[in-house]
């Protein structure tokens, strides 16, 4: 121990300073390593940030697409004067769409009397709406969930079908026709 002390004393000043600097750097790295292990999320946080960045990029792409669409009714089938969506656009519009207006819900309810009854009893209240692209079937599905007390019985009804037309407002797109028959 005494020998080591003497050897340290014999070292030149620049070597001592360099050694001190290296020591401080190691200490800083160790401190951050310990803190990161205690409080940080590490790889998990990086993965989350990447997902969020991808989501924002995708949203920007979809917004650009929506603003390029003509305003009015967009359909995925032939036989109308409305703007016909290509397969690629149909998928993109489906993924960009979140809203389902009242008339589309009322139209779907023609084939689901129970849903219509709960919808009417609850003052046209909808619990949940969804618009999803099905990769396997290559189709867009949309629907809604209504729940409430119907003649003393608590009921929940889910109505879903193929979303075949959309309304483009220039700001957003909305499901305009759910084919549930």
């Amino acid at each position: 121990m005494e020998v080591s002390k003497n050897r340290f004393k014999t070292l030149s000043e620049p070597v001592k300073q360099f050694g001190g600097l290296v020591g401080i750097i190691i200490l800083i790295f160790l401190t951050f390593f310990v803190l990161n292990n205690i409080f940080g999320e590490g790889d998990e946080l990086v993965a989350k940030m990447k997902i969020e960045e991808e989501r924002i990029a995708e949203e920007r792409k979809l917004n650009k697409l929506i603003s390029s669409l003509p305003s009015g009714v967009l359909v995925s089938f032939d036989g109308t004067d409305n703007f016909k969506l290509s397969d690629e656009l149909y998928e993109a519009v489906c993924k960009a769409t979140k809203l389902i207006p009242q008339r589309a819900i009322m139209g779907a309810n023609f084939l689901n009397f129970r849903a219509h009854e709960i919808y009417t009893i609850n003052g046209n209240k909808i619990d949940e709406t969804f618009v999803k692209w099905d990769d396997e079937k290559n189709k867009c599905f949309a629907g809604f969930v209504v729940s409430g007390n119907n003649v003393g019985v608590d009921e929940t009804v889910k109505v879903s079908g193929e979303a075949l037309s959309f309304l483009s407002t220039g700001i957003d797109t909305r499901v305009y026709f759910i084919k549930n028959f």
Partner: peptide, 19 residues
Amino acid sequence: ILFFPDGSTYEGEWANGFM
């Protein structure tokens, strides 16, 4: 007769807004 947006139709009797 009700014409659906995709060209499907229902023709017949109606009561209280339903087929």
